[in-house]
């Protein structure tokens, strides 16, 4: 699952910023092409694609810096849903 999630996230970012090259563990914010508009799109993409709602406490820059970190966020949300912590 983790690899599929990373693929989906990477594809979304790459489609938004063609010509930019980045690895899954590279800080996309440090590359300088992320603005608040894209951040909003990113949050909506993750919520829609992976059927989750990102709570306030998870909406931190640290969770969105890299593809790997975003995939881990998705994983945590899935585990929380399975455990019944979220509906």
């Amino acid at each position: 699952m983790a690899q599929d999630v990373r693929d989906d996230i990477r594809s979304f970012i790459a489609a938004k910023f063609p010509g930019m090259s980045f690895t899954d563990d590279e800080d996309i914010f440090a590359l300088g092409f992320v603005n608040s508009l894209f951040a909003m799109e990113l949050v909506m993409f993750i919520e829609k694609t992976f059927g989750t709602k990102i709570p306030n406490e998870e909406l931190r820059l640290e969770n969105f810096r890299t593809v790997v970190l975003m995939a881990e966020l998705v994983q945590r949300r899935a585990e929380a849903a399975e455990s019944g912590a979220v509906t």
Partner: peptide, 17 residues
Amino acid sequence: VGPPGWAAGTVMTGALD
């Protein structure tokens, strides 16, 4: 209301949208 700092940009962007 909402997360402070970076994520507040998402709060603002969502409202403006």
